[in-house]
């Protein structure tokens, strides 16, 4: 088991390095010159060149990537200018490891941009995750147990309807009608958990419901399908024949087997969401990673874009490793070697 985890972590690191390289090449090879972006309106070629040098964009791509990776491991300073460090050290921005770069557009390290936003996205993702897992799996089980009955049809149809609506529609509807027009719920505002847990929860309710609704629909269908598949397995017939209690058969045998693929999907979904729920954060003005991603993309803030991609990739890779480890715990048929 331990060796397996080590192997998975190692391959995860390789994967992240590759992701960073590809992202780096894609963004920095784009026709948008980041040095031009930081140069002001009337910008002579000499000024662009000077800025390019100050920001390190004059170096070969592979050298820039090497420095980027070094920053993740050992941290960096911006700008890396010896003469400035000597004459005005207070102007140097220190970026401790894991340093994800520096945004000249915002005059801030990407890590410090992301820092306060990760708890926002994590709060939203986890709240939505709890909602869709609890209700999605419960409804899926009910639908499977009542296969072909009215309740099954109702739940499956409702799931399909919810699935058909895009997130921005659900979000805008909830925001405009439930919060603004009908005043049934306070307008959601993010409050840090450490500041006021009650307000934190209150602010999360509507955005989390929005996010959960879309995922919930998929999980109802997923759980129902895998439950039905498990229910047809031979070992369940044996369990019934042995006279095991129906509840025990459901939770110990049927659900446990059905959970494996659901956990896989849930891990990936959660990993991705931890990196920001772009539309939901945008609609509810939640200052999370997703909202920063939109801002960075629309202002061509390339270093921030690269940092966000690495962050999201990290979450997905870590979630994958956790899921792989959980397999062994959930399904006794799986062995980790």
């Amino acid at each position: 088991m331990f060796a397996y985890i080590i192997r998975r972590v190692f391959s995860g690191i390789i994967m992240l390095l590759l992701v960073s390289l590809v992202t780096f090449i894609l963004f920095f090879a784009s026709p948008v010159n980041p040095a031009r972006l930081s140069c002001g309106k009337i910008c002579s070629p000499a000024l662009i060149e000077q800025n390019s040098k100050a920001l390190g964009y004059d170096k070969p791509m592979i050298v820039q990537w090497g420095q980027f990776v070094k920053g993740i491991v050992a941290g960096r300073e911006f700008p890396e200018d010896a003469s400035l460090r000597k004459s005005a050290p207070e102007t140097i921005a220190t970026c401790p490891a894991p340093c994800l770069g520096y945004s000249p557009l915002n005059a801030e390290t990407v890590s410090s941009e992301l820092g306060p936003r990760i708890p926002v996205s994590a709060s939203l993702a986890l709240a939505a995750f709890v909602l869709w897992m609890v209700f999605g799996i419960s409804f899926g089980i009910i639908a499977a147990l009542r296969r072909g009955k009215f309740l099954d049809k109702l739940l499956v149809s409702a799931a399909l309807v919810a699935y058909a609506f895009p997130t921005f529609f659900i979000g805008l509807f909830i925001y405009q009608f439930i919060a603004l027009k009908w005043g049934l719920f306070p307008v959601p505002v993010y409050t840090p958990l450490t500041q006021d847990p009650l307000l934190w929860l209150q602010g999360l309710v509507l955005p989390a419901i929005t996010l959960a609704l879309v995922y919930l629909a998929g999980y109802v269908r997923l759980t129902r399908a895998f439950m039905l598949e498990s229910m047809g397995e031979d070992y369940l017939r044996t369990a019934k024949a042995k006279g095991l209690a129906p509840r025990k058969i459901l939770f110990k045998h049927t659900l446990r087997a059905a959970l494996t693929p659901i956990v896989t999907q849930a891990g990936l979904d959660l990993g991705l969401l931890l990196g920001g729920a772009i539309i939901t954060e945008q609609v509810f003005n939640y200052p999370g990673v997703g909202k920063l991603a939109v801002q960075a993309a629309t202002t061509y803030d390339l270093p921030t874009n690269v940092g966000i991609v690495i962050l999201i990739a990290s979450f997905v890779v870590v979630a994958n490793i956790i899921v792989d480890v959980l397999y062994g715990l959930i399904d006794p048929r799986v062995t980790l070697a």
Binding site: S38, C39, G40, K41, I42, C43, S44, A46, L47, E49, Q50, N51, K53, A54, P79, D81, L84, T91, P104, L105, A107
Partner: peptide
């Protein structure tokens, strides 16, 4: 300080009576 205070209006660079670097023009 065009490499530190980036992005601002730089009109005054061409007006103030300060010599320019022959190579860069700055």
């Amino acid at each position: 300080a065009t490499d530190v205070i980036t992005g601002g209006p730089n009109y005054i660079l061409s007006y103030l009576n300060i010599p320019t670097d022959k190579k860069t023009g700055l």
